[in-house]
Design a protein around this nucleic acid. Structure first.
Length: 129
DNA sequence: CCATTGACCGGCT
DNA sequence: TAGCCGGCCAATG
């Protein structure tokens, strides 16, 4: 493989007009394990310089459905789903996450339990949570 | 080219 | 705890 990041299960070459950074976002999101979540800000940082959390959401919306990106594993820094409550997208995202074992309490998930920082803690300190 | 808009974030009151 | 606010950057009209 070249120096560029490429998606394992998608075809970057078949999508002209998409910036490298957006493809980095797709790559990062594609790597989020089942039952885990990442915030828009974390994805933005992991995708490298040149973007912003806002653009992450744009990038997700732009991803073709055929890519089968686990977009539902990206939530905001408050541990909440960023779609308006009651919208179809909100319900779909929530049910997909719950199916993977992510628990919502008052519409909010515990980032220390399912998030990136939490995963790191469990790696370093064992499962104390 | 300028203004507005977002599935956002972090600091500050 | 809850808002407000400025910053962020690509897409859109």
């Amino acid at each position: 493989m070249g120096g560029k990041l490429t998606l394992a299960s998608a075809n970057p070459d078949a999508m002209p007009g998409v910036s490298d950074w957006v493809q980095n976002v797709w790559h990062v999101v594609h790597g989020i394990p089942r039952g885990c979540v990442l915030t828009y800000g974390e994805v933005s940082r992991l995708a490298g310089p040149g973007g912003s959390p806002r653009v992450v959401s744009k990038a997700l919306g732009k991803a073709p459905g055929s890519m089968k990106l686990p977009w539902h594993r990206v939530i905001n820094s408050q541990g909440r789903i960023s779609f308006p409550q009651g919208s179809g997208s909100y319900r779909q995202q929530k049910s997909r996450l719950e199916k993977e074992g992510v628990v919502f309490l008052n519409g909010k998930t515990d980032l220390n339990r399912y998030g990136y920082a939490g995963a790191l803690d469990r790696l370093l300190w064992g499962s104390k949570l």
